[in-house]
Amino acid sequence: MPEKYVSKLDDNTIEQMIDLLNARLAGAIDLVLAVKQAHWNTTGKNFIAFHELLDEVADRLREISDDIAERAVILGGVAKGTLQNVKSGTALDAYPDGILKTGDHIRELKERLMAYGGELREAINTASEAGDEVTADLFTSACGIIDKDAWFIGANAVDD
Rank of each mutant, 00 (worst) to 15 (best):
E56Y: 03
N12E: 13
V32D: 02
D30W: 00
D59C: 11
E15D: 08
L21W: 03
I145K: 14
T126E: 14
I29W: 00
S88N: 11
S65M: 12
L20A: 10
M114H: 07
E3S: 09
E56S: 06
A150E: 01
A130V: 06
W40N: 12
S65E: 09
V134P: 00
S141P: 12
A72N: 05
F50Y: 04
E129A: 13
D147F: 04
E52T: 15
N41G: 04
G76A: 14
D104V: 06
Q37V: 02
Q16F: 09
N22F: 01
K80S: 05
I14L: 07
N156Y: 08
D67S: 13
R121M: 05
L109C: 07
Y95V: 06
I14W: 04
M17L: 10
D10I: 09
N46R: 13
G77E: 03
G154M: 10
L31Y: 00
T43V: 08
A72T: 07
G77P: 03
V35N: 00
E56C: 02
I146V: 15
L20E: 06
H39M: 08
W40Y: 10
L120Y: 01
I99H: 03
E70S: 07
D30M: 01
Q16D: 14
P96E: 14
G103E: 12
D137V: 11
T135P: 03
L75T: 09
I64C: 00
T13K: 01
N12S: 14
S128P: 09
K4E: 11
D93T: 03
S128A: 13
G118T: 09
G89F: 02
D97W: 12
L92F: 04
A115V: 15
D19L: 05
K8C: 09
V158W: 11
L25V: 04
M17T: 09
V35A: 00
L100M: 12
